[in-house]
């Protein structure tokens, strides 16, 4: 029940940010639509720890800035690779084991790898093996060092 209420509150705030209307009648309509959608989502059983992962928000404040910094570094790396001679492009496909047990943790890990340029997750197996495509040996070493794995585990509370 708590998750449904928080989903309704989050959606009402989103409605407010997108519309910018503050008249009582329109505000009432916005709140009503947010509550209706939250109720439908509850009936669809979509409001669980995957559909509305609010419990991750506090630890996310530590993870997302680190991910943003990694993305900036990887962008500069890939830009240098593209602009230098074609000989520096040396793609590789390899498999790594992700430490997360939960599917939510696996998805966050795979999406984080894909979001950093230079590495793309090509396949995810339910037992935690990820098939990753890396543009250069340096980006491959970055994934194989396992730092992202540790940080995602801490983020979803499995470490």
């Amino acid at each position: 029940m708590g998750r449904t209420v928080s989903l309704a509150v989050v959606m009402a705030l989103l409605w407010l940010a997108l519309s910018g209307h503050f008249e009582p009648w329109l505000l009432g309509l916005g709140v009503a639509s947010a509550v209706l959608v939250a109720w439908i989502a509850r009936r669809l059983e979509a409001v669980d720890h995957e559909g509305h992962p609010l419990h991750l928000a506090p630890r996310g404040l530590g993870y997302w800035p680190w991910l943003a910094a990694e993305i900036v570094k990887a962008n500069v790396d890939v830009a240098r690779t593209i602009l230098s001679s074609p000989a520096s492009v040396d793609p590789a496909v390899f498999r790594v084991k992700a430490g997360q047990k939960d599917e939510l943790g696996l998805v966050i890990h795979a999406n984080s790898i894909t979001l950093t340029p230079g590495t793309v997750t090509m396949d995810v197996e339910p037992d935690g093996w990820l098939t990753v495509h890396a543009l250069t040996p340096a980006t491959r070493a970055g994934v194989e060092s396992g730092e992202m794995d540790r940080r995602v585990s801490r983020f979803v509370g499995e470490a």
Binding site: V78, I82, V89, P91, T114, G118
Partner: peptide, 14 residues
Amino acid sequence: RLPDVFSRLHGAGM
């Protein structure tokens, strides 16, 4: 410039 569709994904990701 990149050689195949998998490496071009990195360019689009930037």
